[in-house]
Structure formats: C-alpha cells, structure tokens
Design a protein around this nucleic acid. Sequence first.
DNA 1: TAAAAATACTCCATAGGTATTTTAT
DNA 2: ATAAAATACCTATGGAGTATTTTTA
Lengths: 298, 298
Amino acid sequence: MELRQLEVFCRIVETRSFSKAAREVGLTQPTVSAHIKSLEEDLGIRLLDRMGKEALPTKEGEVLYRFAKRVLALVTEAKQEILRVRNVVKGSIKIAGSNIPGEYILPGLIARFQKRYPDISVKLEIMDSREVARKVSSGEFEIGVLGARMSDARLEYTKFLEDELVLAVPPDHPLAGQGRVTLNRLKEFPFVIRERGSGTRMSMEEMVARKGLDPDEFKVAVELGSTEAVKEGIKAGLGVSFISRRAIESDLKHRDLVEVGVPEISTKRHFYIVTHRKRSRSNLINVFWDYLLGKEEE
Amino acid sequence: MELRQLEVFCRIVETRSFSKAAREVGLTQPTVSAHIKSLEEDLGIRLLDRMGKEALPTKEGEVLYRFAKRVLALVTEAKQEILRVRNVVKGSIKIAGSNIPGEYILPGLIARFQKRYPDISVKLEIMDSREVARKVSSGEFEIGVLGARMSDARLEYTKFLEDELVLAVPPDHPLAGQGRVTLNRLKEFPFVIRERGSGTRMSMEEMVARKGLDPDEFKVAVELGSTEAVKEGIKAGLGVSFISRRAIESDLKHRDLVEVGVPEISTKRHFYIVTHRKRSRSNLINVFWDYLLGKEEE
DNA sequence: TAAAAATACTCCATAGGTATTTTAT
DNA sequence: ATAAAATACCTATGGAGTATTTTTA
C-alpha cells in the first residue's frame, strides 16, 4: 500500500470517476486504473465497483476511504509541522556546564537569555569538564561549556570567554606577602588540586608542562572535587592552588585569599563551547550559541 | 514520502542504527541509507544525525517520528478493519420494494430475518417497480424486489416468488355472478388501473399483449397510484382491475371483492430480486439474498 | 455515438541487491 | 581493527506515459 495510491483512491471515491480523479491528481486514466488494481491486489479485495457511469466504493472501500483520509491528513500535518518546527524558537535547551562556567558565568548569561527568549526554557547541569565532553560526545547533551579541550575527535570546540588562573594562597601563607614566586620555589609548597577531569586541573598541568616541568614534581596535599571545596581547602591551610579568578573575586577583595603572581607562566586560558561534530544543531541551540558568542564580543 | 520509507525511518529511530533497522525490516543497509536519503531530500531537511556509533533523530526527525508512528498504526488498523468488515454480519441493509412485495411479502420476511440476524438492521422503502429499478440501477439501493422486469442492461434479475393477477370486481358487478369472462367481453367494462411504472400494470399489459391485443383497447376509468387505492376504486364501483391475489385475499374472503376467471390468459407472474450487474454484493446483502431465496424454496 | 475504463505496450525512475570504500570507534 | 554508513554499480519491478480496445450509458 502506498500513499500515492491512497490519494488516487480517495479522489476516485470523491469524484466517482477514474478519469476525473486522474485529471485532478495530475495523472492519466490508465495510471489511475493501475494504481487501483495494484491496491486491490495488495489488499486482496475489491475496493471500487466500476458501474459504467460512476465508480462506487464497496463496503471495504468505504472503510479504506475513511482511514485513507485520516492517513493523508496526518501526512500533510506532519510536513507542515516539520517546516514549522524548523523556524520555531520555543522549547527547551539542555546545557552541560563544567564547574567554573556553570557556577560563575552561565547562570548570569542564561538569566539574560531567558529574558530575551521567554519561550525557551534552559536547563543547566553542572559536572566536571571531562563529563561535559563525554555527555556531548555521547549525544546526551547537544551543547556544553567547559574549561579545557578534551581530546575526542567527535567534538568541536569553539573558543568562548577568556579566563585567568590565579595562584591563590591563604593570607597567612609565607608567599602571601611576596607578590610573586618562581615555579621552582612553588614546588616547596603543598597544593590543593581538583580531580582529573577538571578543566582547571588540566589547564594548570598544561601551564607547567609548557615550561618543561612535570606536574608530578609538585606536592599534592589533597585532591578535591569542586571549586568551592578547593577554596575552602586553601583557606584552611591545606595548601595553595591555581584557581579561576572569576571564582575568587570576592575572596581576594575581602583578603580571605591572596593572589601571588607567577611571572614565568602564562596563566590565561579559554573556556570553550563544545558540540558534537556530526550532530546537526537545532534552531534553538543555534539561537543560544549565537547569543553566547554575541555576549563574548561585548 | 512513502510508507516504506516511514517504516524504515521509525525503525532507525528505535534502534539508533541503520544496519539494525535494515535487518529488522528485511532490507540491506545500503537500501535503508537510500530510503533515508530520499526521504530527507523529499522533505528538504536532515532527519537523522549519523553520529558514528549511533544515529539520532534531529528535532525535525523527532517530529516526523511521532507522526510516522501514527500513520503506520492507522494503516495497520485499516488493513485489519477491512478484513474484519468482509466477514461481519452486522450493519444495515436498505431495500427498495415495489408495492405488492413491499406491502404484502417483505414485511413478514424481514421480521423473521431480523429475528435470525438481530445485528442487521433492515430498512425497506416502498415505491413502484420502475422506481425500484431506477434506484438500484443508479446505485442508490443495493437491492430491490419488484413485480416486473424493467429493461435496463445494468440490472440483474433473479426470479423470486410466484404471484397471480386476479380479475377483481365488486360484488354487485354484472360479472360477479358469472365466475368467468372472455377477453373480448372484458373490453366492455371500465378499468381501474395502476400508473405506468407499476409492475402490476406492466404484467397486466403483457398478459393481454401476449394474446395479440392492444392494452389501449380496454376502457380506463381512472389511473391510481397504489394497490390500496385500486382496491378502493373497485369497491366504489369505478371499474374492475387485475390485482395481485396476495393483496386481496381478505377482501375475497369477506366478499368485498369477487374474483372472475379469464381462462384465455395466463395470470401468473413472478416477483424479482434486482441488483446491479456490476456492483459487488456486500456480505450483508448476500446474507439477505440467500435468506430470501431460501424462503422461496420452503 | 460518446465517454469511461481496461488493455497493451513502451520507457524510465527507483527500490532492491552486491561489492567496495570511507568513516569513526 | 572493526563496525557502520556511504558510495558505486547493476537488475528488475513497477510507475508513468501513449495508443488502442472494450464496455456501457
């Protein structure tokens, strides 16, 4: 059974004529005859009584007609709905955000985004950068924002905002009064660091690696699973750490933490928007994507 | 857009794989790929994101999936319903009956028929024989019962019960005491006759025509549109008439009318079941048809 | 006779296949 | 390396046409 056949069939029932139906659907009469023959053979039942002047549906034909009309209407509706959905800016977006962007950057951006697009609901889930990458890669999330590129050929990264990793120490720390420190000297002090999978951790390791040093040369006092935990760890005197300036702005202001420069290394890093290379972006995601990048330029 | 394509598409969405879907619908993977390609080109939109390991529907694909499932379910339902309807003995039958069968024969038969098939509702419409033929010919009725064959190549007649036309006169009529009369003598008496289109009228005319007489040789006092009207006309002394024995049984018994024999002519006639030669008989009609002919044999 | 449907046929698009390549994990 | 999808290519079915015949009003 084919849709074209159903269309032809319906037209015949409506016009009571093969020839008229043929004209109306833009086919020739023999083609229409063939369609009906094929349909009747397919169902194993006579659908139309050809009564010379007019063709009338049999009992079974009447049943088919009712169903066929519904089927054809559904197909038409589906096509319209598909076209409509393409341009619609209404629905919901799921974003995977790593710790720093998810806690210090995205909430504000999303709040403003929702003011501009009140019909789009946004859901943000926070996890570490490795998870962000994994879940975008697997298709669970369409879009993510994270603090380091995770190597995965399926992923496409777009540079987002710039960030700076600051060496933060407690106010009573030996380095607190010095303002700056060499990398070599730093090795003497225990560190509080994030888990593997954290973008901050990765950026940190890259920074020292670029100077030819092995991250393992540094002393690790404790490994913690979130930015806030690391901050508290530093304040408690467990050690020092590189940490996003965005996460400790108020701490620096209140001198709960003190920044120490490390002139040898570049402490800049980027956040990235990550999407799946092979996944088509929905209209909604495009709107959000454009919004994020627009904000960056401001 | 074709139904096969929709089926393949749904299977891919469900299995998240072209190959698995291909196996499940009994096609090869390249064929499945081609179907999706064709569907996507047809709609002008990407429906599935091929993400290596798994294929996920796009936003538009999700919309199509929901519609496609409904369409396919409808088609399945339609097929089942068509098969079901073929064997069902439930529904309604419309019968066109001419005056004599409609008033004196069918009501009783239909009453017994409905006891045997309580799920079949029967509607009987009474009209003269010509109308019965016309309405079956035009397809308005599937079946009719009438008192004379109307020439119409589209119609198929099946002999039904036998009937007899009786020359009926009022009790005070000159012929009433004689028991029999010659055709020639009959020409002296005015007739009450049915309208053209009546089976009784046609049978009557055929009877005399078979004897080489012109029906116009008889005197027509008045032409009336129903059997009952003719009966009343005879009783009122307007004239005599040939009339179905079935219609005047009680009148003869009570001597409200008197039968006069006309030995020269055969007064037998048949009723007929009439259907359209080219119209397929529904199951219901077949059941009724069989019932009628079964009754006749009893 | 005129109009409608069926039939016969031709043509070609495409659904289907197999074999192979490309791509992604 | 393996598995999936895409591509290339071939075949045959059947959808579409034209021309004609058959049927019926």
